[in-house]
Amino acid sequence: MDLRRLLRKAVLQAALGLLGAMVLWPPAVPAQEEVTSSIRRYKQRELSTGYYEEYEVKPRRQRPRVRAPEVIRQFTPVTPYRPGAAMGAGVRSRLEDSHAGIQFYEQRRCEECHVTEATHSRTVRGNLTCRQCHGGEPIAGINYYYSPMNPIRRHAYVCAKCHEGASVSFATYLVHEPKAGDPATRKTFASLYYANWFMYLLIVGTLGFFILHTLFWMGRETYHAIREKRKPEPREEAPPQEPQNE
C-alpha cells in the first residue's frame, strides 16, 4: 500500500516536473539562428570545418552584368523593416541582437536589406561573406559592448582571423566605405571627400586643357594643309610663319 502510494506520488511528481520543464525550457527556434540552416545546417559546418559558404549574399562571381539595386528593393514583396514601429538605426547598432523585432527575418538574406554593403569592395573583391566578420545569429550591433565587432576588440576578434597581427590602427580601415562623391561624406570622412574633389579637378583640368589644346592644334594644322594644297606656288619661307589673317 505504502509502496503503491509512494509510486503514485513519484509518477505525479515526475509528470509535474516534466510539465514544468516543458514550460520553462527555452523553446527550440528552428530558423532564427541561421537563414538557411533548416536545410543545410551550415553554421555547424562552418564552425567544424572553417569553411564559409557564399549564400548569405548572392553568388558574386555569377552576378549579372546589369544590376539595379533600386529594382531589387522594389520587387521585395513585403517591407519587413518598419522604422516607425521598431527602434531607430542608431539604437540598433548598440543592440545585442541588432535585428531584433524585424518581421520575417529568418526568411531573408543579408543583402536584401543591406544592398550597398553587399557590393562593397571587400565583399566583391576580397571574397568575404557577411558572416565572416559580423558573425552568426544573433548578429550583435557593432557598438554593442560585447560584440566582436566593437572597435575596442575588432582588430583582434575579427581582422586578425585573416590578417595575422592586425592592430587597432589596421582595424580603422573602412570596409563599408561611404561614397567619396556623396555630399554627406564631407562630414563622415572628410579626407576621402576632399581627396576625391582634388583628383576630380586634377583629371578634369589636365584632360580638359590638353584635349582642347590638341583639337585646336590639329584643326590649325589641317587648315594650313588645305591652304597649302590650294595654292601650288613653292614656299619661300617656313610655311607655318604665314598665317596673318587679322
Binding site: 592586425a166 567619396a180 576625391n196
Partner: peptide
Amino acid sequence: PLAASRIMPGWVLNVFVL
C-alpha cells in the same frame, strides 16, 4: 597594409585607394 598601418592610421588606406 599591416606594416603600413603601423606608421599611419588604417583609414588612410581608404584614401590611398582613391
